[in-house]
Design a protein around this nucleic acid. Structure first.
Length: 276
DNA sequence: AACGCGCCCTGTCCGC
DNA sequence: TGCGGACAGGGCGCGT
């Protein structure tokens, strides 16, 4: 489900709500959503009595930091949701996997129909190692055109697949990969290392631009995505190519095409984004 | 070592 | 209305 803008929106919804509050207890209905070798008993023990210090985002993950230095990383997979129990939408959740009960009587609910989501716990050392596996934040100052060119130059993978690899640039998924490539006028099947310095710079701008705009619109809701209050996003009305096969390119009017790469749809304008 | 693919799981939609 | 197949904002483990 969610990519960087959706996770950012969720994090911004939780940040004013959770810090300062303590988890009294955790109930776990789906222990298969704990990252191995994590066990339910260990999660309950390590989180009980812990006070949230901060809640933010790293790549496509929600990162919570607790008063003893413990960190909890939550990945929402395709259909995961984090909703406060006191939001009206909480009543509609039908696949709640974990409940984090707070000291004020409310609870943070982790719901996930497909159960592709994951919960990780880290101490300082394991977090440093985990953090190092996640790529550059595309909305940070470190994400420069030069850095982008260095990264694309190092791989022959098709650029659409390249963008989905979280170890390089963190937070881009299938929707925003399609949109960023359209903005940069780069065909999705181009080998990453075939991009010129100028194209890599345009793609950097396309990635950063579409993510920033989507954050401003509180994310894209296609089917499942909801924020921490249960509300849908608004960026779906501004997509240029994703899921728009056969519809006119907003730039040139040519019908958008769909192709399958690595068993996932890729959308592009055959006029604006010529192959090779 | 880097890359492509199958698979994890449930829900929804579309054609017959 | 029912049923099978395709498809879905992700990511891991495997084989090559």
């Amino acid at each position: 489900m969610p990519e960087l803008p959706e996770l950012e929106t969720i994090a911004r919804g939780l940040a004013p709500r959770l810090p300062g509050h303590t988890i009294e207890r955790v109930t776990i209905r789906r222990s298969d959503m704990l990252a191995p070798p994590l066990r339910a008993a260990e999660v309950r023990r390590r989180l009980a009595g812990r006070r949230f210090v901060s809640v933010g985002r790293r790549g496509k993950n929600i990162l919570s930091v607790f008063d003893d230095g413990l960190r909890m990383l939550i990945n929402l997979g395709m259909t995961g949701r984090l909703v406060m129990s006191d939001a009206a939408a909480a009543r509609d959740l039908r696949h709640v996997a974990l409940r984090f009960f707070l000291d004020d009587g409310a609870a943070l609910l982790f719901d996930d129909a497909r159960r592709f989501g994951r919960v990780e716990l880290h101490d300082a050392a394991s977090w440093a190692a985990r953090d190092a596996t996640i790529g550059v934040e595309p909305l940070s100052d470190a994400f420069t055109a030069e850095r982008m060119f260095e990264l694309t130059s190092a791989s022959a993978t098709p650029i659409r697949n390249w963008l989905l690899d979280q170890r390089r640039v963190a937070g881009v998924g299938n929707i925003y990969a399609a949109e960023a490539l359209w903005r940069a006028r780069v065909h999705p099947a181009r080998p990453a290392n075939s991009l010129t310095r100028e194209e890599a710079g345009a793609l950097r701008d396309g990635v950063a631009g579409v993510l920033r705009e989507a954050v401003d619109h509180r994310g894209t809701t296609f089917r499942d995505y909801r924020d921490a209050s249960g509300d849908a996003g608004g960026f779906q009305f501004r997509l240029a190519v994703y899921d728009r096969a056969g519809q006119p390119c907003p730039r040139c009017g040519t019908p958008i095409e769909r192709m399958v790469m690595s068993n996932r749809s890729a959308f592009f304008c055959p006029e604006c984004q010529p192959p090779g």
